[in-house]
Every structure is written in structure tokens, then in C-alpha cells.
Design a binder for these strands. Structure first.
Length: 199
DNA sequence: TTAATGATGGGCT
DNA sequence: GCCCATCATTAAA
């Protein structure tokens, strides 16, 4: 059995990984691998950029209480919160903190590792660093949409795994594309990684 | 720099 | 219930 670089039989991160302080989870997610199983095979990419959204944070969808849209943020940690925005894009988040708290981490960029051809097809681009270098791009590359909202990431077709990758350095900055609480330093990314989004 | 594009939710009535 | 500014974006120009 010489399976090189396939993430088929890797154990997903446990619930306890997500049931922690949201900033900690945002930083810990860097370097982990997002894996989706589809009929055509496996899509996998290393998480290189994240943002934390906390309950008492005006930029957080949950800051004004539970609504139909944000209800999974208040649910069990380790589930996917996928929402539609700007009339044409989806954003993929990971629910963090204990049940009832309403916090999450936005996955802003990943480095494609496996299923790159399929991702390129979904994205209609051939440039590697343009495949998943932004939150909307991540969803398009992995084919994520409404139907994935609420999925349990600890067991199923959409998971996050640890493949033992060791980071060089994490950079901290303010979050991108928000108006409220724009001064909070809750964006994290892997230094010198070409798949991190720019602006 | 700006258009595309539509769901969401807060603030009314 | 209606109105409408807003929006955790992207691609094209």
C-alpha cells in the first residue's frame, strides 16, 4: 500500500479541538488540511489563512443574537457554518467554543494539495495561486454551498485533519473586508505562503 | 476602481 | 409585513 498524499484514512480533528477559545482555534487551524470526499475523488488543501469572529464582536454574525441564518454558530462546535454573501459567493466557517456561544473561524484561504484538477475546473482557472486564495474561492474550489451548512466536521464527507505539517511562522493582522471592528487583530496566516489572500 | 448580484435583518409602519 | 442599506467577495477594466 503506497498511498502518497491521500487523506482518505486520516482521522478528523476531534470535537475538543474546536471547543476552545476561538482565537486559539483560528491559530491552530493554520497548517491543518481541509478534506472533502466527492464522487470523483478527494479534494484536499492546507489551511493558510483564517479569521476569528467572536460573539461580542460587532463584525460577527452572531453579535446580535440567534437568527435563522446564524443558528449553527450557536450549535455544537466542530460543525460547518456556510453562508451566502454579496449575492454570489459562499463563505466557509468552523463553529468554535461551547454550544450556545455563537463564535466561528472563517477559512479565508487554502493551499491546494489534492484534487487540484477538479478544483481548477470548479474555479475556471489554471493559476494555482488563484484557486483558493480567498474565502469565496475556497468554497468554489471545494464545491461548498448551502447544503453544507451545519455539517459535522468531525465525522463525514467534509473534515479537517492534521497531517503533521509544522509551520514556519504565523502572521497576525486586522481582518479583511469588514467595516465594524476593523481594528481587531484577528486575522492569521502562514508567513510567505503564496495562497494567502491579498487586498 | 467598480459592477455584478441577492439574501438578510433592523427599523419602521 | 414592507423597505432598503448592507454585505466576512470576486473579476474585470
Amino acid at each position: 500500500m503506497t498511498s502518497m498524499n491521500t487523506f482518505t484514512n486520516v482521522t478528523p480533528l476531534p470535537r475538543s479541538f474546536y471547543c476552545r477559545e476561538t482565537i486559539e482555534v483560528a491559530q491552530s487551524l493554520l497548517g491543518k488540511v481541509l478534506v472533502r470526499r466527492v464522487n470523483e475523488g478527494i479534494l484536499a488543501g492546507r489551511i493558510v489563512e483564517t479569521e476569528a469572529y467572536k460573539q461580542n464582536d460587532p463584525a460577527c454574525h452572531a453579535s446580535k443574537g440567534m437568527t435563522k441564518r446564524n443558528q449553527v454558530m450557536f450549535g455544537e462546535p466542530g460543525h460547518a457554518y456556510v453562508y451566502f454573501t454579496y449575492g454570489m459567493h459562499f463563505c466557509f466557517n468552523v463553529v468554535t467554543a461551547p454550544q450556545g456561544v455563537g463564535e466561528a473561524v472563517l477559512i479565508r484561504a487554502v493551499e491546494p494539495l489534492e484534487g487540484i484538477d477538479l478544483m481548477a475546473r470548479y474555479r475556471r482557472t489554471n493559476k494555482l495561486t488563484n484557486i483558493a486564495s480567498g474565502p469565496g474561492k475556497v468554497c468554489q474550489a471545494f464545491g461548498l454551498g448551502r447544503e453544507h451548512n451545519g455539517l459535522d466536521l468531525t465525522d463525514g464527507v467534509l473534515t479537517i485533519v492534521d497531517d503533521g505539517y509544522v509551520l514556519d511562522r504565523i502572521v497576525t493582522s486586522t481582518r479583511i473586508g469588514i467595516r465594524l471592528a476593523a481594528d481587531l487583530p484577528w486575522r492569521f496566516y502562514i508567513a510567505n505562503n503564496p495562497h494567502v489572500s491579498r487586498r
